[in-house]
Deep mutational scan, measured.
Amino acid sequence: EAHAAIDTFTKYLDIDEDFATVLVEEGFSTLEELAYVPMKELLEIEGLDEPTVEALRERAKNALATIAQ
Protein backbone atom coordinates (compact mmCIF):
# COMPACT_ATOMS: atom_id res chain seq x y z
CA GLU A 1 0.00 0.00 0.00
CA ALA A 2 2.81 2.42 0.82
CA HIS A 3 4.37 1.93 -2.60
CA ALA A 4 1.03 2.56 -4.31
CA ALA A 5 0.58 5.79 -2.34
CA ILE A 6 4.10 6.93 -3.23
CA ASP A 7 3.40 6.23 -6.91
CA THR A 8 0.12 8.15 -6.74
CA PHE A 9 1.71 11.13 -5.02
CA THR A 10 4.63 11.35 -7.46
CA LYS A 11 2.29 11.02 -10.45
CA TYR A 12 -0.45 13.45 -9.44
CA LEU A 13 1.32 15.93 -7.15
CA ASP A 14 4.45 16.43 -9.25
CA ILE A 15 6.74 15.70 -6.29
CA ASP A 16 9.78 13.47 -6.05
CA GLU A 17 9.82 10.03 -4.48
CA ASP A 18 11.62 11.25 -1.35
CA PHE A 19 8.93 13.84 -0.61
CA ALA A 20 6.20 11.30 -1.34
CA THR A 21 7.87 8.83 1.03
CA VAL A 22 7.90 11.44 3.81
CA LEU A 23 4.17 12.02 3.33
CA VAL A 24 3.49 8.28 3.56
CA GLU A 25 5.72 7.95 6.63
CA GLU A 26 3.72 10.76 8.23
CA GLY A 27 0.55 8.71 7.73
CA PHE A 28 -0.89 10.04 4.48
CA SER A 29 -1.96 7.47 1.92
CA THR A 30 -4.55 9.15 -0.32
CA LEU A 31 -4.99 12.33 -2.31
CA GLU A 32 -8.22 12.95 -0.38
CA GLU A 33 -6.30 13.06 2.89
CA LEU A 34 -3.83 15.58 1.53
CA ALA A 35 -6.56 17.71 -0.01
CA TYR A 36 -8.83 17.89 3.02
CA VAL A 37 -6.82 17.25 6.19
CA PRO A 38 -6.52 20.37 8.36
CA MET A 39 -3.60 22.47 7.14
CA LYS A 40 -2.18 22.38 10.67
CA GLU A 41 -1.51 18.64 10.33
CA LEU A 42 0.54 19.15 7.18
CA LEU A 43 2.43 22.06 8.72
CA GLU A 44 3.59 19.74 11.51
CA ILE A 45 5.74 17.86 8.98
CA GLU A 46 9.31 19.08 9.26
CA GLY A 47 10.35 21.17 6.29
CA LEU A 48 6.87 22.12 5.09
CA ASP A 49 5.82 25.75 5.17
CA GLU A 50 2.45 27.31 4.43
CA PRO A 51 3.06 28.09 0.72
CA THR A 52 4.25 24.52 0.13
CA VAL A 53 1.26 23.06 1.96
CA GLU A 54 -1.16 25.28 0.03
CA ALA A 55 0.39 24.21 -3.28
CA LEU A 56 0.30 20.56 -2.27
CA ARG A 57 -3.37 20.76 -1.26
CA GLU A 58 -4.27 22.55 -4.50
CA ARG A 59 -2.50 19.90 -6.58
CA ALA A 60 -4.28 17.16 -4.64
CA LYS A 61 -7.69 18.78 -5.21
CA ASN A 62 -6.96 19.28 -8.91
CA ALA A 63 -5.85 15.66 -9.23
CA LEU A 64 -9.04 14.45 -7.57
CA ALA A 65 -11.11 16.55 -9.96
CA THR A 66 -9.18 15.18 -12.94
CA ILE A 67 -9.53 11.58 -11.79
CA ALA A 68 -13.27 12.03 -11.23
CA GLN A 69 -13.87 13.02 -14.85
Score class of each variant (00 low, 15 high):
residue 37 V to K: 12
residue 36 Y to A: 11
residue 66 T to E: 15
residue 66 T to N: 13
residue 31 L to R: 00
residue 60 A to Y: 00
residue 58 E to N: 09
residue 10 T to Q: 12
residue 65 A to F: 03
residue 11 K to Y: 09
residue 10 T to S: 06
residue 43 L to E: 04
residue 8 T to D: 09
residue 49 D to S: 09
residue 19 F to K: 05
residue 59 R to G: 07
residue 58 E to W: 02
residue 56 L to V: 05
residue 17 E to K: 14
residue 1 E to T: 13
residue 16 D to Y: 06
residue 47 G to F: 08
residue 30 T to S: 11
residue 33 E to A: 08
residue 60 A to F: 01
residue 59 R to Y: 03
residue 35 A to W: 04
residue 30 T to M: 05
residue 28 F to N: 01
residue 45 I to M: 06
residue 14 D to M: 08
residue 54 E to Y: 02
residue 3 H to C: 10
residue 8 T to I: 15
residue 20 A to N: 01
residue 69 Q to G: 13
residue 12 Y to H: 06
residue 64 L to N: 02
residue 14 D to I: 03
residue 1 E to C: 08
residue 10 T to V: 15
residue 50 E to F: 13
residue 62 N to V: 14
residue 5 A to I: 15
residue 18 D to M: 12
residue 33 E to Y: 05
residue 65 A to V: 14
residue 6 I to M: 07
residue 30 T to C: 05
residue 1 E to N: 15
residue 14 D to H: 09
residue 49 D to T: 10
residue 26 E to P: 01
residue 44 E to I: 12
residue 4 A to S: 13
residue 41 E to W: 05
residue 50 E to H: 11
residue 19 F to R: 04
residue 9 F to G: 01
residue 68 A to T: 10
residue 54 E to S: 13
residue 2 A to E: 12
residue 25 E to R: 14
residue 49 D to M: 05
residue 40 K to F: 12
residue 34 L to W: 02
residue 50 E to A: 13
residue 62 N to S: 14
residue 37 V to Q: 11
residue 58 E to L: 06
residue 43 L to H: 05
residue 4 A to W: 09
residue 65 A to I: 13
residue 32 E to P: 03
residue 6 I to T: 06
residue 24 V to N: 04
residue 56 L to I: 12
residue 61 K to W: 02
residue 32 E to T: 07
residue 40 K to N: 14
residue 59 R to D: 04
residue 42 L to W: 06
residue 14 D to T: 04
residue 53 V to K: 04
residue 24 V to R: 04
residue 14 D to K: 06
residue 33 E to W: 02
residue 68 A to L: 08
residue 42 L to F: 09
residue 68 A to H: 14
residue 7 D to K: 08
residue 36 Y to T: 15
residue 41 E to M: 06
residue 1 E to L: 09
residue 60 A to G: 01
residue 57 R to A: 06
residue 40 K to G: 12
residue 16 D to E: 09
residue 65 A to H: 11
residue 27 G to N: 02
residue 50 E to L: 15
residue 37 V to D: 06
residue 55 A to S: 09
residue 23 L to K: 00
residue 31 L to V: 05
residue 59 R to A: 11
residue 9 F to R: 01
residue 62 N to G: 11
residue 13 L to D: 01
residue 41 E to Q: 12
residue 38 P to T: 09
residue 20 A to L: 03
residue 59 R to W: 03
residue 55 A to E: 09
residue 23 L to D: 00
residue 57 R to V: 11
residue 42 L to R: 04
residue 35 A to N: 03
residue 7 D to Q: 10
residue 40 K to I: 13
residue 48 L to C: 04
residue 47 G to E: 04
residue 22 V to K: 15
residue 53 V to G: 14
residue 14 D to V: 04
residue 54 E to Q: 10
residue 64 L to M: 08
residue 28 F to T: 01
residue 44 E to G: 14
residue 68 A to S: 11
residue 61 K to R: 13
residue 9 F to T: 01
residue 50 E to R: 15
residue 33 E to K: 09
residue 8 T to G: 06
residue 39 M to V: 13
residue 58 E to P: 01
residue 6 I to E: 04
residue 52 T to L: 12
residue 10 T to Y: 04
residue 63 A to R: 03
residue 48 L to H: 03
residue 19 F to G: 02
residue 11 K to P: 01
residue 5 A to T: 10
residue 42 L to V: 05
residue 21 T to P: 00
residue 25 E to P: 00
residue 24 V to F: 13
residue 41 E to R: 12
residue 46 E to V: 14
residue 57 R to P: 04
residue 64 L to Y: 01
residue 34 L to E: 00
residue 19 F to S: 04
residue 36 Y to M: 12
residue 20 A to W: 02
residue 12 Y to T: 04
residue 16 D to N: 09
residue 17 E to Y: 13
residue 51 P to S: 13
residue 6 I to A: 05
residue 62 N to W: 04
